[in-house]
């Protein structure tokens, strides 16, 4: 019977611990990272059990193979990619991309992205995920957001740390944060 309690404690520590590790990882990005604003477009609201979330598409969500100096078929093994964003006014814009960790100036940040592609087929360009493509909203509001006229004028606030890890913090329209009643 003692074994039951020992293993139960291990299970609880593992399950709760792994969740809190994820939480603290993300909080550390927010604490130590640089906040930047980039242009974004909500493209596809989905309704799951847990409410709606809006799929966000960034100007650098898809880049051409030539941008990283590779031909289409040479990108087959490419797993990660680094995108350099440069500050222009209040906004940060895509500047360049590389397959290795880039050297950056103080007016630049870099994001680490995973090259996403169906292993069963090729596409013309590289589709990249940074882990900041979804924004969760209360049920029913995702569709409203997608229909909104302001969807073309939307910005996202992102925290980026020195390793290129990112965290989506909020959505803005004309400088004001979109309030979802959180």
């Amino acid at each position: 019977m003692k074994k039951i309690w020992i293993v139960t404690v291990i299970v609880i520590i593992f399950q709760c611990g792994s969740v809190y590790t994820m939480v603290f990882n993300k909080l550390s990005i927010k604490k130590h990272g640089t906040p930047i604003k980039v242009r974004v477009e909500p493209i596809d609201p989905r309704s799951l059990f847990r409410g709606d979330y809006v799929i966000l598409r960034y100007p650098f969500s898809s880049i051409k193979c030539e941008d990283v100096g590779l031909k289409e078929r040479e990108t087959h093994d490419l797993k990660n990619i680094y995108i350099v964003l440069k500050k222009r006014g209040d906004m940060w814009e895509y500047d360049r991309a590389s397959v290795s960790k880039p050297e950056i100036s103080h007016e630049e940040v870099f994001l680490k992205g995973a090259v996403v592609s169906d292993v069963f087929g090729y596409s013309g360009s590289l589709s990249i995920k940074y882990g900041i493509e979804s924004y969760f909203v209360p049920e029913g509001e995702g569709r409203e957001l997608e229909k909104s006229r302001e969807r073309k004028n939307m910005d996202a606030e992102i925290y980026v740390d020195s390793k290129g890890c990112s965290l989506l913090s909020g959505l803005f329209v004309k400088g004001g944060e979109v309030n979802f009643g959180k």
Partner: peptide, 25 residues
């Protein structure tokens, strides 16, 4: 009940994804 604990653990992972607006990987 342990199965329920596991299901809720899965829900917990997705909640973290939801709270921090991440769904990558």
């Amino acid at each position: 009940l342990s199965l329920l604990g596991n299901i809720i653990f899965g829900a917990d992972i997705y909640l973290v994804a939801q709270v921090f607006n991440i769904i990558s990987r």
